[in-house]
Amino acid sequence: MAGIVGYGAYAPKYRIKVEEIAKVWGADAPSYKRGLMLREKSVPAPDQDVITMSVEASRNAIKRAGIDAKKIGAIYVGSESHPYAVKPSGTVVAEAIGATPDIHCADFEFACKAGTEGMFVALSLVEAGKMEYALGIGADTSQGAPGDALEYSASAGAAAFIFGKNDTVAEVEHTNAYMTDTPDFWRREYMHYPRHAGRFTGMPAYFKHVTGAATALLEISGTKPEDFAYAVFHQPNGKFPTTVGKKLGFKPEQIETGLLCPRLGNTYSGSSPMGLTAVLDVAKPGQLIFMVSYGSGAGSDGFIYRVTDRISKVQDLALKTTDYLDRETIQLDYGTYAKFRGKIRMSE
């Protein structure tokens, strides 16, 4: 059965706290922290973008897979913040990991769902026997408009997964997808910041699609929430995944390992994929993992993974996701953050 043969994550070293952002906009930090269940978010350094983080996450995945990068037949980078409007991110990643030229590349965009979309397609190509290995990546350096609620959460990170049929660390037992046209969040061409539909992003958007995908996934797999050791949901903030998990019948202890948002923010396309890497870092053979992503616009991809015996051999082969979170961070003031994120109008 096809599954994940190697995985890796990457998070930048810089952080900004909710208080630091709230101070600038005269907002009430405690209520934001409570409402979003979020303390701080990662910030990409000026020399980091989706491509650089994807390369680092992929290198970690290759270390765990223990394969020659030349054997990877496809790279799909999912992101809403590809560095170029026109020019693929995937080819740069492919070149940096040494996977060119016999490789298929595509960049995906589907708000926060682009990462699992890349994983979904990579997995499908492997299952179809088109290639031995395929790499799916979710990465973002997302921007919320200054002062907007999104500014507190939009962060940066990446996760990469190599799919294959042999030597898997987690087999993919079931997948499904659930999509409708729901305009809850968007960004038009040439616009610097996205727009969103406020509270409409909740019930008819996030909750409807995550619940829809999750319910169908449980049904087709004949599983119940209690069968899973871990559940990972898309994390636009700390509150939504906690609420949806509870509603579906998952317990807080099933969700907390993969819930990175409170200390990392919303890494968009990297969100649930990074949550999955954090789970794989500690998972034990035989355990089941439930995962549902969400992307505005809108849709969810669902996956059920069964962890294999090989997991314990690869967990220590690269930096763990919590290593990136637990390492000493560099806290930014708002001015430096604004400079890093290109929010200051410069001399032309």
Binding site: P46, I51, T52, E56, Y84, K87, V92, A96, L319, D323
Partner: peptide
């Protein structure tokens, strides 16, 4: 050594990537 953006050829030009050193974990 990590993969990073080194510079860009103006706002509209290509992005130049390369290597930089970061403190070892």
């Amino acid at each position: 050594i990590e993969f990073r953006k080194v510079k860009q050829e103006g706002q509209a030009g290509i992005i130049n990537y390369g290597y930089k050193a970061v403190p070892a974990a």
